[in-house]
Design a protein around this nucleic acid. Structure first.
Lengths: 351, 351
DNA sequence: TCGTTCTACTTGAACGATTTAGTAGATCGA
DNA sequence: TCGATCTACTAAATCGTTCAAGTAGAACGA
């Protein structure tokens, strides 16, 4: 005999069919008031918690939850107000649709530990969900293959061959504006701080080959180049995870070079805050000695006087949610506007 | 004929039994190399994504995810660095155990919309999870009943009759320290700012009856009273959700009274930041004109010079995760230490 | 050569619900 | 009074797995 009570045992005890018990929970209007309350009473007596979640998911083919894929450790994701903002927007819509939100961290495609990728791809396979938000997941990432074969609806934050639904920003155009801004200020020797999973937390200077960078970082770098125009020299450094600390480390690398750049662009505000720290440690003044720019316009950026690119954070999350959950939402590819926010951290180049 | 490929169809195509296909995915060592690769090849050809998540959950009786219950709208939860920190700690452990994290917002028990409570309790019933973290869920909340009858392991942040596993802080003792601190500074006319779900966003002054307050707020209020000792007059105001804005509004209420308090305690740092705003708008200087204290010691508190109670945020999340997921973790009731952090926002009472 | 152990696979019964199709009886209009 | 329609419920199939138990055949020791 089974341990816990089930539809069946309740049905027996109440003297009705299994389907009636099921209906008592799911389609109350199909049952007479009398029978329905009797069933629910019996259920309570037996300590029956209501239809089993897994069984219901299996039979009805819906999970009541959507997954959100991160290619960062969750602890990093939560320390970036940008991810948190996106999540908040998404959660808002999910909540309205009575849908849960499952956070799924996946190891980056170029992770140092190859097992980690397999394991996390398995997590994607085993997640009981109805749809997925792919947040900065590399187009090459094997998770996409799993999602595809599972046939789950996906909304992504970056272009991935085979996918149809996106909520994007103009990555290239955004950093082009940053580049132009710095060019007008006379900066010709410029540093770039990138995140990169591939090299762990190790610093490394990017040489000619940029193909191993995350795709959105390639785009931001390209736009930045275009904006700066010819005659500028760019040194790009990756500092590992997206965190203040790695921004600080990467900036240190740049600032201690003999040909110290007069400006540094970071591809996220969180990293840029680290760059500001590195300046501070060297008694350099942002916007005077060295100009610094970020990306995202998180609340802290305003407080720090950081020149950055603003994108509608929560709105991006909301749109992703609606694309997945709202059947009346027809658009499949939304490109959100971004804006260059100039603050005190950028100024004319020295010398 | 069924739509998508299944274990069965793959088995047929590969000329093996269903269980062998299952084993190819779950117990590779039980199969010969030859057969295993053949199966996986056939699966790939057929576009089979691997064992169905819901079916697996049903049969194996495990979901591969734990739920986290909030009694706030998720959007508020994400705007409080405290919740985010807790979540980060929890996520860290979940990640290590290859377990997903399902966010489940539940309507507060005293919600203005009674349907909302039912709906959200249903969400708890339908969530495919192996365990639950109950974050500040009122002991009276019906969600507890569902969890209990589902037989799910629970870890809570506050005492709930019937539950066994907790990661707590000494609520009463913490605010007692705050009260003592303010007493030494000579404060006798004191305001308290609480969150309260019951009244929506409406301000209200708490009279003698405190029974409708959230239990942890009752405790904090009690400790505060004890610390302040006799002879002090306390006016408590609830400002709605836990947010900067409602802190601001509640403080406004207090500051504009004829008997303006010389000190205000808020039960969270987020609210306290709002109190500081309210002071600022009235050209009052924190720690001089009016003293202000918070709770949690979020990063922003340090920047704002806020006197507050620090509790180990991420550690609390990690412990909850381990209690749920680590079989070697034997403790069932951990009480974490808190510390009064005195900063510039408190000073001697005026007059 | 016989029995034992091992390996590699198969069989068949759960897991706990939803859903489609169907039935018995009441109601109703003509 | 007949057939149609409606209400309230039931029967049986199905969802796609996992798992305990079982089997056929190879390998092995004595």
């Amino acid at each position: 005999m089974g341990a816990g009570p089930s539809l069946k045992s309740v049905a027996r005890a109440a003297g009705v069919s299994v389907s009636s018990v099921s209906n008592a929970y799911n389609k109350p209007e199909q049952l007479s008031e009398t029978v329905r309350t009797r069933i629910l009473d019996v259920a309570r007596e037996q300590g029956y918690a209501g239809p089993d979640a897994a069984a219901r998911s299996l039979r009805s083919r819906r999970a009541g939850a959507i997954g959100m894929l991160f290619t960062e450790q969750l602890s990093y994701a939560f320390s970036d107000p940008y991810s948190v903002g996106l999540l908040a927007g998404l959660a808002e819509v999910a909540e309205q649709s009575r849908t849960g939100l499952l956070l799924i961290p996946v190891a980056p495609v170029d992770s140092t530990d190859p097992d980690a990728v397999d394991t996390s791809v398995q997590a994607v396979r085993q997640a009981v969900i109805d749809g997925i938000v792919a947040y900065c997941v590399d187009p090459e990432h094997p998770a996409h293959e799993v999602i595809r074969s599972r046939g789950l609806p996906v909304v992504a934050t970056n272009d991935v061959p085979g996918l149809t639904h996106y909520v994007l920003i103009d990555e290239v155009g955004s950093t082009r504006k940053v580049g132009q801004h710095l060019r007008k200020l006379g900066h010709r020797q410029v540093g770039v701080v990138l995140t990169s999973h591939s090299h762990g937390d190790e610093l490394s200077v990017i040489e000619a080959d940029e193909s191993h960078l995350l795709d959105f970082e390639q785009k931001r770098l390209r736009g930045f180049r275009e904006g700066l125009g010819s005659g500028a020299e760019i040194v790009a450094v990756t500092g590992g995870h997206n965190s203040i600390e790695s921004g600080r480390a990467a900036a240190g690398e740049l600032l201690d070079r003999v040909d110290r750049p007069t400006a540094i662009m970071a591809t996220s505000d969180v990293m840029a805050l680290g760059v500001l720290q590195a300046l501070d440690e060297r008694r350099l003044v942002p916007g005077k000695d060295v100009s610094v720019t970020g990306f995202d316009n998180i609340p802290e950026a305003a407080a720090a006087g950081l020149t950055t690119v603003s994108q509608p954070i929560a709105e991006r999350g909301r749109l992703m949610g609606r694309m997945l959950l709202d059947p009346d939402f027809a658009e499949t590819r939304v490109v959100l506007p971004t804006k260059l926010i100039v603050r005190a951290s950028t100024g004319p180049a020295r010398g």
